[in-house]
Amino acid sequence: MSLDTSQTETRRERLTAHEALQRLEQERASRLTQLRAIDEAGSDTEEQVMSTQKDTIRRVLAEVEAAFARVQDGTYGICRTCSGPIPVERLEILPYTPYCVPCQRNAA
């Protein structure tokens, strides 16, 4: 096995803190943009739908902020339920998730 291959495999096991922060910043920016768009839509959209969308976006923003804290305290990428590693592929899709897939399924 070449040195390059083992570095690639190691990299795939965990996101670096820098990569995690970049992904979380993108998520935060996206959700804030969504909130602004809903606010600007005003009366064009039904009030109940706007309220539900805002609540969902705010919930995700809270999860993103919690993920920033996990990066800072060194627990990012570790499942809160089983303490196992969260696969990097899952973190690439949901960078703010605190759970591995099996634990997320059990919680639902």
Rank of each mutant, 00 (worst) to 15 (best):
R28V: 00
L24N: 01
I57N: 06
I78K: 00
M50I: 13
V88W: 06
S51W: 09
A66E: 09
A62L: 14
P98K: 08
T97Q: 03
E40I: 01
R105V: 15
C82V: 11
G42R: 08
R70G: 09
T81M: 12
R28F: 07
E46W: 01
K54D: 06
C103N: 04
R58V: 12
R80T: 15
Q22M: 09
T75S: 15
E25P: 02
A20L: 01
R59N: 05
L61G: 02
P95R: 08
T75R: 07
R28N: 07
A69D: 15
M50H: 11
E92Y: 11
R90W: 00
Y76Q: 01
Q26P: 00
V64W: 06
Q104P: 06
P85F: 05
R80D: 14
G77F: 04
Y99C: 07
R58N: 14
M50D: 07
L24E: 00
L21H: 07
N106F: 10
L32F: 12
K54P: 03
R70T: 01
R23M: 10
H18P: 03
D39H: 10
Y99N: 04
D44R: 04
R28T: 07
S43P: 02
Q53P: 01
E46S: 05
D39C: 02
A41E: 10
Q53Y: 02
M50T: 12
A37N: 14
A62S: 15
C100D: 00
V49Q: 08
Q48I: 05
G84F: 06
V49F: 02
R31G: 03
R58P: 05
R36A: 14
V71S: 08
D73F: 11
Q26S: 10
E89H: 05
A67Q: 02
R31V: 01
T52W: 14
A69S: 14
R59M: 03
I78Y: 04
Q26H: 11
T33K: 12
I38T: 01
V71Y: 04
Q34E: 14
